[in-house]
Design a protein around this nucleic acid. Structure first.
Length: 103
DNA sequence: GTCGTGACTAGCC
DNA sequence: CGGCTAGCCACGA
């Protein structure tokens, strides 16, 4: 797999349970602050199974974003992890549960 | 090498 | 607050 994708997955694994991160933050974590889009692509083409919690990755505006299994499934999983989803598929307390990577 | 695509983002109206 | 636009990046054809 491309090194880029591997770095992304590794970063995602650092996200604690019950928290979420954003594509933008992941992009920063891999040293490509403007590659949020590419990050999404990497996750999409490589779900890499339960090992990589791609469901904890949301958009910068708090929306759930996308998911290979479908947004509904993603929302369900997040809820199961203790994260509440409001209307418009937005994460409640997004600012609080959003995990920011150490630089 | 160029083109099109997509789980994105910030800015502007 | 909501919708639209342009900019960005990695990847495959």
């Amino acid at each position: 797999m491309s090194d880029f994708a591997e770095q992304v997955w590794q970063a995602v694994r650092r996200v604690p349970r019950g928290r979420v991160t954003t594509y933008a933050w992941l992009a920063r974590a891999v040293g490509r602050p403007k590659a949020a889009r590419a990050v999404g692509n990497a996750l999409n083409h490589n779900p890499n199974a339960p090992k990589t919690p791609c469901h904890r990755v949301v958009r910068s505006d708090g929306q759930i974003g996308g998911y290979a299994h479908g947004q509904a499934a993603k929302a369900r999983i997040l809820t199961q992890e203790g994260i509440r989803i409001g209307k418009k598929n937005k994460v409640d307390n997004f600012r609080q549960i959003c995990y920011k990577f150490p630089r």
